[in-house]
Design a protein around this nucleic acid. Structure first.
Lengths: 149, 149
DNA sequence: CTTGATGCAAAATATTTGCATGCTC
DNA sequence: GAGCATGCAAATATTTTGCATCAAG
């Protein structure tokens, strides 16, 4: 996993480059994404921050504005599939993909070089500058297959 | 691409099984997803239907309700990316994955046999019974790359 | 000091729900 | 007919925006 200091430096660098300001709120949002594995809605991020820092003044509008900024800069990305609303996750993480068991919810991480290489090729084929990818294989893990029988 | 009659039969079969009713509105929504390539928001689907059948009585609530139903049954998928809100597309299509531009929200569909085959192998390696997979390559499309410069 | 950032509340959107009525089955 | 589906409008939820004020650079 990327070191937080590096991530923070990168964020500051981007802000400086765009002549935007580094604020406590912006830092907290980045930090929250960093410290919490998983995907969060703007509301959830706000709760996490208020839980951790009950005295900080921060509103939902700032969360939205900052997440949009982070996403534009590739430091975060959002995704929504199925029923759930839009969720944000930190970008720049060590890459990995997931096998997700729809029976018990277990998540297995994996990494496959052949797929990775091939994804690069696909991106090139479409003249795409790939920054991230998401891959989830969904199905039943071995235990849940047994249960079904 | 799957034949529309077959798709419709499948839909009717599911409805019967769940003791739900087959209505003109439900059919139109399915048909609209079938006839229009691409990804649409509920509002867009409503417009497409009203455009094609100016006399039909149909409200946005029905669109939402039907899309949720279709998604539950695997006949449609929703996906949301970057700025854009949630978009629906027909399920049961020939399988494909997505390139998503985080600059403009454009979605490009692609299919790569090598990746598909490899996914099967990964699943096998973990003794996983794969039922579906989600893959998104996220980055900047060629136009948005130009804009950034 | 200048300029962008923030919180707040209001506004704009998007989505869901209750209910009287209409349609399938 | 019985019971689900629909449209409509109201209720919610989500996201964006205007503006006075604050604070980073």
């Amino acid at each position: 996993m990327l070191n937080y200091q590096l991530l923070l430096e990168e964020f500051k660098r981007i802000l400086k480059e765009k002549r935007l300001k580094f604020t406590k709120q912006r830092e907290l949002i980045l930090q929250t994404l960093y410290e919490n594995e998983g995907h969060f809605s703007p509301e959830e991020i706000l709760s996490l921050i208020r839980e951790k820092m009950p005295n900080i003044k921060i509103g939902i509008a700032t969360i939205y504005r900052t997440l949009a900024l982070l996403e534009e800069q590739g430091l975060a990305y959002s995704i929504s599939l199925g029923k759930e609303g839009k969720k944000y996750e930190l970008g720049l993480k060590t890459h990995h993909d997931h096998l997700v068991c729809i029976g018990c919810g277990k998540i297995i991480e994996f990494f496959d070089e052949v797929i990775e290489a091939r994804q690069e090729e696909v991106a090139k084929r479409f003249n795409f500058l790939m920054q991230e990818h998401i891959m989830q294989l969904r199905g039943l893990c071995s235990e849940c297959q047994k249960k079904k029988k």
